[in-house]
Nucleic acid binder design. Sequence first.
DNA 1: CGCCAGGTGGGAT
DNA 2: ATCCCACATGGC
Length: 243
Amino acid sequence: MRSSFLLSVHRRLLAAYGPQGWWPLPSMAGKRGFDPRGYHPGSFEWPRSVRGRFEIIVGAILTQNTAWTNVEIALKRLQASGLDRPDRMLRASLRRLASHIRSSGYFNQKAKKLRIAAKAFSGPGALDLRAAPSREDLLALWGIGNETADSILLYAFARPVFVVDAYTRRIFTRLGALAGGESYDEIQGAFHRGLARRADLYNEMHALIVEHAKQHCRSRPACPGCPLSRSCAYFRAGSRSSS
DNA sequence: CGCCAGGTGGGAT
DNA sequence: ATCCCACATGGC
């Protein structure tokens, strides 16, 4: 993908939706002003505390193939029960942990995944929440795949790693910039080559992609008013082609 | 109702 | 390598 194309997509999405201020947190929902954990709505700030980083890791796992609204409910319950830190999480039974994250779906699987992540980030010889782990270390954990690992690296540790998700694939396939069958690594490579290696740029671009997928480039596309329709193959084809 | 949502791992081919 | 499937809730 051409650099100029990616930058133009970024510029138009930003103009249409504004700065996204990711990573989104339940405590942010509908609020303005300063958050004690160091986040600020509307303009992003990277997490400073180990607590904030672990919350992002938990959210990244819970949001796997699940609507964020369902994840927010689960995150709030974890916080309300004091299970939002690795050591506390490890003390809860799988059964109890699962009951708290019920709303996020796949709760048995995700309880297991959370426990594994909590274990990986606490105790002696564990990964350090104060420093970015390697992608390899994250991928070695059961329950953490490409997208989750990259979300953690980018949003919790401010590493310049582009996150590829189902929305990215859908939008850029419709635009005509992807064929649709590319692997995760191929797509990520295209973004890494086309965009400057900057965490703040990757942060905003991915967040804008998510917003655009929700507003216009939905499963069933809502093309009227789409900020990208001018350069969209799907739109130019008369919005008739499938998916 | 049925479809969809910011995936992942396991098993068969 | 590449399909196919299980995993599961809540919103529209």
